[in-house]
Simulated scan of single mutants.
Amino acid sequence: MRMPKKERQRLLGLLLEKNPFLTDEEVSDHFTVSVQTIRLDRLECGIPELRERLKSVASRTMKEEVKSLHSDEIIGDIVDIELDKRALSIFDVTEDHVFQRNGIARGHHLFAQANSLAVAVMDDDLALTVKSTILFLKPVRAGDRVVARADVKEDSLLKKRTLVEVVSKVGDETVFTGEFYMYRMTDTQQGESN
C-alpha cells in the first residue's frame, strides 16, 4: 500500500534533517517512489537540493578554519571539522574518476580524499604525511558518494607526530580505511613550536 503524500513529505523532512547527505536517488529508494516524486516533494516542502543542503550544513558546523591546506588543495568537500579532533568530507565520484574499462574509481582519488582530510584536521600551519597504512575494501563507482571521517588519536609516545584514522564509506559500507602518521611543527606533548 502506498504511503499518503503528506505522510511521505513529513518523513522526508525528518529523514533529510537526520542525514542531509542523502541523494534524491537514495531517498527515492528509501520511499520506493520515483526520483521525480522526491524532487517534487522537496520543492513543495521547501527542502533544498543536496548541494545547497551540504553548504548549509558546512556553514553551521565549520567552526574552525583549516590551517594546513588551502581550500583548493583539499580533495572532496569538508562539511565538518574540529581541528585536532575530527573532520568529515564528501567526495562525489564522477566518470572522470573511474577507469573506463571497468567503471571502478581509481584508488588515488580515495587516498587523496583521506590524506587531504588527515592533513586538514591538523591544528598546525605545517602538517605532512610521514607514513600511511591503507586498505581498500570495496570498489567504488561513478555516481557513488564517498563520506570520509577522520579522527585524531592521542599517542603520548609520538613527539611531533599525530595519528589520524580515516574511514571512508559509501552509504553504510566501508570502502577504505587508513592510518596516517602526520608530522607537525608543534610538539604534541608540550604544545610549543621548536
Rank of each mutant, 00 (worst) to 15 (best):
P20C: 04
G13S: 08
V27S: 02
A142Q: 09
A142V: 07
D84E: 11
V175I: 15
D125Q: 07
S68F: 11
K153G: 06
R106D: 06
N102I: 03
G191V: 14
S89Q: 10
I134R: 00
R10A: 02
A120R: 05
T129F: 14
S56H: 13
V140D: 02
S132V: 02
G178Q: 03
H97C: 06
A105D: 03
D96F: 08
S28I: 01
N19F: 10
D151E: 06
Q36F: 15
I75N: 05
L137A: 01
E73F: 13
I47N: 04
D84S: 14
D77A: 02
D41Q: 05
V147E: 03
V66Q: 12
E17P: 09
R10G: 00
Q36H: 13
T23N: 03
M1I: 08
S116M: 02
L43P: 02
E154M: 12
T133G: 07
D24I: 04
L163K: 01
D125K: 09
Q9P: 01
D24V: 07
L137P: 03
D187W: 08
G103H: 03
S89Y: 15
D92R: 04
L40K: 09
L69P: 05
A58H: 12
R8H: 05
K63S: 12
R161A: 00
L16S: 00
R184L: 08
I74L: 02
L88W: 10
D172S: 07
D84T: 15
Q190L: 10
R106A: 09
G191D: 10
T162Q: 13
A120G: 02
F180Q: 01
R184A: 10
K160F: 13
K159D: 06
K160Q: 03
K153T: 06
L43F: 07
Y183Q: 09
V79W: 12
A148V: 15
R106M: 11
R10T: 01
F91R: 01
M1E: 14
M185V: 12
S34H: 08
H30P: 02
M3T: 02
T162G: 03
V66N: 13
D41E: 12
Y183R: 00
L54I: 14
E82F: 15
S156R: 06
H70D: 14
D125M: 08
G191Q: 08
D151R: 11
L117C: 12
D84I: 14
V35P: 00
S193V: 02
V79P: 00
A150C: 09
D151Q: 01
K159M: 04
T174C: 01
A87G: 07
K160D: 05
V130W: 06
K160W: 14
H70R: 13
D24E: 11
L15N: 04
L40W: 13
K138S: 09
I104K: 11
D72L: 04
A105Y: 11
E95I: 15
F91P: 05
V140W: 14
F180H: 05
L158Q: 09
Y183K: 04
V35H: 05
S116D: 04
D24H: 05
D151F: 10
R106V: 03
F99M: 01
L22F: 04
Y183W: 07
Q36G: 08
R42P: 03
I134W: 13
E44F: 09
T37S: 14
E25C: 05
D124P: 09
G46T: 01
L14S: 05
K131E: 15
R161V: 01
Y181M: 05
D84N: 15
E173I: 15
I38L: 04
